[in-house]
Amino acid sequence: MSGSSVPAGGRSEVRPGRSLGAAALIGVALMAAVDEIVFHQLLGWHHFYDRSTPAIGLLTDGLLHTAELLGLVIGFVWWADLRRGRALSAAHAWAGLFLGLGGFQLFDGLIDHKVLRVHQVRYDIPDLLPYDLAWNGAGLMLLAIGAVLAVRARRSVGRER
């Protein structure tokens, strides 16, 4: 064992920021997977490709979709590395997970659906507004849960110190 190579600090080497970041990546990718599996494949609400999708929307969508996939792998391996080094703060990780879930949901609802117009929540209905509100409301709620958890995680760390 080479204790000298470990940075000074000993046991209190927990990394709250990294714990939050790794879990947030997993959260983003999980929500993207739920979106793909539930709304694209099971319910068939979303369209795989909306013919009105502009080229920039298509390109951004391709990049984001690939980034989500890579994010899932990076998030998990990062999380595993933190665990291995006993640097994982569970409270921050939970906060990050919800921030990631909500962040993706809201990003998808506002940027993908409205700004880039990749596709819409649903097509066979007269009024899209309730669906958009529910979609983005759910995103906001997840973000709020994540924010509350993050504040509590920070307080608990403060108390320990």
């Binding site: 490709y49 999708t53 298509l58 390109l59 969508d61 391709g62 990049l63 979709h65 690939t66 890579l70």
Partner: peptide
């Protein structure tokens, strides 16, 4: 490189749909 290649693959697949 994997990110860029994956995006190029995904975009091509989507355009082939239409």
């Amino acid at each position: 490189t994997l990110l860029a290649a994956g995006a190029a693959h995904a975009v091509l697949a989507k355009t082939l749909y239409a």
